[in-house]
Design a protein around this nucleic acid. Structure first.
Length: 438
RNA sequence: GGAGAGAUGGCCGAGCGGCUGAAGGCGCUGGUUUGCUAAACCAGUAUACGGGGACAACCUGUAUCGAGGGUUCAAAUCCCUCUCUCUCCGCCA
């Protein structure tokens, strides 16, 4: 979330920057902020008074002198004075309790607003309201040529007998798939390959819980706004199935103060991801593109604020490395302000070429969240032993979405005879050079 | 599922109704001493939000001893509820 005081002090600027995304939802922020300050001052005054009363009534080692309500009291006190002060203290407590109630109400309203306001887009983010205005920053590799009509991945998979949507829907419903034989192995091979590449490049592998609590979901920005997108366990304890490893991995350091020289911290994690895909009823109903459950290797970084944009480029390059090694044609696009995710200040999508649809599809999304998640999740670092802790910057990106990588391989490496070649780098993991009809 | 124990500052650990933001230790920072290292000694060492000051140093107010309520003139300390952690038994893997 955004910093309360920053918003208050730079209100117009914040509104202007948010409006690049489209809607601005700051509601009654200004009025509430003013009331909050006023109440705070009043409450502190009352408390200070009652602390004086407390000191006078307490049998301390040294005699105490205090001025309360214009009268000065000197210990030792007479009974009458004591009774006076006791009565006053009660009154003060009641008053401040009353005001505290009001303050609480206002703070929760302010919180509500801040928790649902998205991050400010970075200056380098392209102008625009939708994906139409995303800017292609580079195109890598060559579009594969086919001397036959390339089939969509679901046809490739089903005709090889390694992909089964019908049985998946019997077991679970729409938007699920069953992989069999070498396709199941391909998923495993890809995950291992990706993790091996990333760990060799300085990422620490993490296997986190796949069920997380509400605080974790709030920390990374999924809640409170997008609850309908997630799967939730019923009752007690209330847990959410992770929509991405970003959630558990970023929350590894929630409420922690990291040492400055530990940074940057780089993690990678292979996990399943669960998404309701609410509101996407007509979209991508065929194939593996949009599933309720898929697997992903995620990269997560914690770094110093001044390093985050360099780290963002580097993280994107790390994700791209996988595509390059797999020989897949792709492009990188910088998302326009309006297409940016809720928590992101800047985001590159990597889009892989899918020949059957003659289109690029998102296979990775690499975001810099600046301190937006760190503030929600309270993740700080000490720049040096002497300095105060400050919020880290967090980043993450898919490296890559494994399910969609399977799609890309099935489509780009399909052969005229219906078989699928295995990219060179995966062969040690697969033990075969192609998937052929049994 | 049954029976217990506990949650205090970066960490360990006292305190169990009243100048206690909280002893002591460790760690950390600065200094002294020292051929280097080590050690010893001295000093400093929480965070947040207000007010003053130059959005500096600094001064000052308030809050914070797992969370929330209650008792009391006064709560880290007493009571209630919740959360989490740990130990033992059972159960499952």
């Amino acid at each position: 979330m955004l910093d309360l005081r920053y918003v208050a002090q730079n209100f117009d600027e914040v509104v202007a920057r948010l409006s690049r995304r489209g809607t601005v939802e700051l509601g009654e922020f200004k009025r509430l902020f003013g009331e909050r300050r006023e109440l705070n001052v009043q409450i502190e005054k009352l408390r200070s008074e009652s602390a004086d009363v407390g000191a006078l009534l307490s049998p301390g080692k040294q005699p105490v002198t205090r001025e309360v309500r214009g009268t000065s009291y000197v210990q030792p006190l007479g009974d009458e004075q004591k009774n006076e002060l006791r009565a006053l203290s009660k009154e003060l407590k009641e008053k401040s309790k009353d005001l505290e109630g009001k303050l609480k109400e206002i703070e929760s309203q302010l919180d509500q607003i801040l928790l649902t306001v998205p991050n400010l887009p970075h200056a380098s983010v392209p102008e625009g309201r939708s994906s139409e205005q995303n800017v292609v920053v580079r195109v890598v590799g060559e579009r594969p040529q086919f001397d036959f009509e390339p089939k969509p991945h679901w046809e490739v998979g089903e005709s090889l007998g390694i992909l089964d949507f019908e049985r998946a829907s019997k077991i679970s419903g729409a938007r699920f798939a069953v992989y069999k034989g070498l396709l199941a192995r391909l998923e495993r091979a890809l995950a291992s390959f990706m993790i091996d590449v990333h760990t060799s490049r300085g990422y620490t592998e993490v296997l986190p819980p796949f069920l997380v609590n509400r605080a974790s979901m709030t920390g990374t920005g999924q809640l409170p706004k997008f609850e309908e997108d997630s799967f939730k366990t019923c009752g007690d304890p209330e847990l959410f199935l992770v929509p991405t490893a970003e959630v558990p991995v970023t929350n590894l350091h929630r409420d922690e103060v990291l040492e400055g020289d530990q940074l940057p911290i780089k993690y990678c994690a292979f996990t399943p991801c669960f998404r309701r895909e609410a509101g996407s009823y007509g979209k991508d109903t065929r194939g593996l593109i949009r599933q309720h459950q898929f697997q992903k290797v995620e990269l997560v970084k914690f770094c110093r604020p001044e390093a985050s944009y360099d780290e963002h480029e580097a993280l994107t390059a790390d994700a791209e490395e996988i595509l390059k090694r797999l020989g897949l044609h792709y492009r990188a696009v910088s998302l326009s302000a309006g297409d940016l995710g809720f928590s992101a200040a800047k985001c590159y999508d990597l889009e892989v070429w899918l020949p059957a649809q003659q289109t690029f599809r998102e296979i990775s999304s690499c975001s810099n969240f600046e301190d937006f998640q760190a503030r929600r999740a309270n993740i700080r670092f000490k720049p040096s032993a002497k300095e105060k802790p400050q919020f880290v910057h967090t980043l993450n990106g898919s490296g890559l979405a494994v399910g969609r990588t399977v799609v890309a391989i099935l489509e780009n490496y399909q052969q005229k005879d219906g078989s699928v070649l295995i990219p060179e780098v995966l062969r040690p993991y697969m033990g075969v050079d192609a998937i052929r009809k049994a």
